[in-house]
Amino acid sequence: MSEILVLIDHAEGAVKKPTYELLTLARRLGEPSAVFIGPADKASEATEKVKKYGAEKVYVVDDSEIKGYLVAPKAEVLQQLVEKASPDAVLIPSSFEGKEIAGRLAIKIESGLITDAVDVEEGPVTTQSVFAGNYTVKAKVTKGTPVITVKPNSATPEEAEGAAAVEEFAASISDAAKGAKVVASQPRKSTGRPELTDAAIVVSGGRGTGGEFGAIEEFADALGAAVGASRAAVDSGWIPHSFQIGQTGKTVSPQLYIANGISGAIQHRAGMQTSKTIVAVNKDEEAPIFELVDFGVVGDLHKVLPAATEQINERKG
């Protein structure tokens, strides 16, 4: 069976959930080879993790020389791995960075690219959701080695022990790839809540919160949910941009999405319309968000949410 390259999504060696989803999908296509680009001393930690999800091989690329140089060097690493391993496909997490790596890689290896797949089947045939989720498209790469970026939550990670044979890979990085560099970085304070893009439940707030995100956060915590926001809330300075959901923010596809004080503009829908169950609390019964919901409450979120939070906490005992 042919190799399927899977780029590991991690922070300093801590492997993120989308990686397991990609490995699960990769097993449908061939033998997953995970690619770890990161600090050499964290490689074994990452290897242990991907082994559980069926990685047969792990290519370890020490990033000490390319750290901070963003996407271009990573695209070169993958290009060289593609040349070496002749995989049947390359799967990359569909973050902004992942898509840029994929874009550069596709040009380098003269191969077709599919972004934001929500499913990958044998072929590989991909499924994408387009036009703010109004259409589902099945597509296939017809040239070269398919490069596919896959959205978080596209598959349920399934455990399967792999051999995880480690192979150190010394990539040669051109100077041209080092043209842009991170010169300063301010880590975001962790909220202690699940990460927005891979959370099972997302509770979001819009202009209707009036800037009072406390009620949203407490409700989210009662449900163990991540907190999100509309652009109006972000533009008002109530919450950082990294929490924005929609066309120019994050796309989420959780099991449950609860929109509070959000009208449901098309650009917001683009980021949440594929959620499994959608709930809204809005005081305007005409709000377009209600067209999407499985359950809706017409009411003031400042009354509904605190009461619901209390009841949920009671039920949990």
Binding site: A106, E110, S111, G112, L113, I114, V125, S129, G133, N134, Y135, T136, V137, K138, A139, K140, V141, T142, K143, G144, I278, E285, F290, E291, L292, V293, D294, F295, G296, V297, V298
Partner: peptide
């Protein structure tokens, strides 16, 4: 370099209980 094989219009979400 890619080929669309099928496009399907998503059935509009049916509104649940309000």
């Amino acid at each position: 370099w890619t080929e669309v094989q099928e496009t399907t219009e998503r059935p509009p979400r049916t509104q649940g209980e309000i």
